[in-house]
Structure formats: structure tokens, C-alpha cells
Design a protein around this nucleic acid. Sequence first.
DNA 1: TCCATTTTGGTAGATTTTACCAAAATTTCC
DNA 2: GGAAATTTTGGTAAAATCTACCAAAATGGA
Lengths: 151, 151
Amino acid sequence: MVEEQDEKILAELQKDGRATNQQLADTVGMSTSACWRRVRALEESGIISGYSALVARERAGFATSAILHVSLERHDVKFVDEFVARVMQRREVLECFATTGDADYHLRVVVRDMDAYNKFLDEFMFRIPGIRHVRTNVILKEIKTGVALPF
Amino acid sequence: MVEEQDEKILAELQKDGRATNQQLADTVGMSTSACWRRVRALEESGIISGYSALVARERAGFATSAILHVSLERHDVKFVDEFVARVMQRREVLECFATTGDADYHLRVVVRDMDAYNKFLDEFMFRIPGIRHVRTNVILKEIKTGVALPF
DNA sequence: TCCATTTTGGTAGATTTTACCAAAATTTCC
DNA sequence: GGAAATTTTGGTAAAATCTACCAAAATGGA
């Protein structure tokens, strides 16, 4: 499904999402037209789901971030769906994963400052119905924030 | 430092990292040349740290991922630096954060299958010197994996 | 208000994207 | 094994985009 040449393309486009088709074709070892067609196929099949500029969080004015461990009171679809729906539309929540372990969900939240985080908890998180427990782990340091899959 | 117009540009480039300069200029409401110069400045100042293709994890063959809570035995710079250095060069570790709370670090690890994850633990994680405890939280479902800061 | 600095919009040549073609490679089926 | 059908390839050219320049407009200090 995803062949070796595709993986090379994906690896390169993960490293530089704005690489020109010529650069790509060179590093992958293919003609520009063949390369371009493969990229197009990867986009249309959804294997490449999009492209994004990576913005330096602190420099852009987002000083505070945290990882939240969230547990629900009950796990009826009703509560779960409501939780998921609300989380999806809050842009401060960059990531949300349902996990095994003590907590039901792991969230990563990014905000401008602690005030904004406090507001986020009071006005959003604590008002979601069916929340049993929320534990905040403030991020002291971002060691690594990668998006590239390890082809 | 980062003005309103810059934020519009950043927001748009986060949504579509390959938007053409004309699209950008239109949505931001600016001439193409002014827009292009601002983008260039954002890149050169490091506020835009790069561009990346976003690849659909499962479709690309990475079925397994987990969030790890890692605690160190000792917190001398020696052990900390060693831990950070090793984590930085393992491409399966997409993210690593030093946090408050029970664990010292939160890691997100992505691999092709459980076998690969087991190998990752045995051959890498458990061999890092000074590790006190590693707790694995398998990711059951990715609710959200965003990269866009909430401008 | 005036001058210096910064930012803007317009323009044009260089580069890139994109759609097409026929040739090469691969697969399928007998 | 070999011929036909299918897929993939490389090359080409027109359309679109990028990029560097210019003079004009906007900004802001004295």
C-alpha cells in the first residue's frame, strides 16, 4: 500500500513540507513528473492529511502548557460523546488521547499564560458533564515536539 | 513582536502549510508582496520553525502508540542530560515533556506494532541509566492530534 | 511640521506547478 | 514462457507562482 518510494517521499515531506517537487524528486531519485504524481496520490488517498507551518510556541506568545489526566464518572456513550465533542472544538486542546492506565484521557493544552489556563479549567473543563477527576501536569520544559512518523 | 497581521498569517499557514502566497494575501487582506515579506520575516526570525506534511499514522503503517510516564532515580544534570540526549535521537519518541506531577517526563511513542513497542522498551528505554520507573499508557484512540496554536 | 525609517503595492523575470503525451516497466492471463 | 492489458515512468510546455526589485505610502520621533 505504502511502498518504499512513497515512504521516502513522506519522510522528506515531513522534514520539509514545502520542499519543491524538484528537490523531492532529487532526494527520492525519480523524475519530477513521477514524483509529483505520487505526492498527489498520497494527498488524495489521505495518507498525507495536510500540511502545516510549525510555529515556535513561546515566541508566538503561548507561555503556558500542560498535560491533563482526565477521568470520566461514567462511560456511557452519552458522556463520552459529549466529552469528545467538547474537546474537539476547544482549540487550546492540541491533543487528546484515550488511554489505558489510571486516567481515561491524556490532553495537551496550550495557552498564553496561567490566567488563561485557570480560565480554561473553570470555564471549560470543570463544566463538562460526567468528569470524575482532572489532574494537571504543568509542562516545565518541552524536550521534543515532533510530528514526523519514524519511517 | 507578533502583530495581528502576523497572527493571521500564522493561523492560515498552520491550517494550510502549502497555501500559495496569493491565497495567503487574500485571506489576510494584503498585497502579495507585503504578505510574502512578512512570511519570510517570520521564517527567518524562527517564529515559523519549519513546515511539515501531516501523515495519517495508521494508514502509514504505525498501528501502535503509547504515552509513557517516566521517572528518574536521580536528577543530577549527568542523568538528566543523558536521558534527554537519548530521547532526542530516538525517532519513535515523537514528544517528550518535563512535567510537574508524579512522573518527571511524559513521552509519546509511535511504532509499527506491539512487537516494536516491546523492543523499544527492552532495547532502549530500560537501558537508559538512572530510570526509576516507566509506566505505559497504551493509546486506545486518537481523539485529536493537532499542531496549530490557538491564535 | 518635517525628516528618517519602515512598510506597502506593483511589476517582471526566474522558478515551479500541473496536465498532457508516448515510451518503458510491470502485471495478468493463457 | 510470452503476448496483451494495465500501470508507472520521463519528458515537455503552458499556466501559475515565487522572488527581487522599485517607487510610493504610511509611520513615528524630534
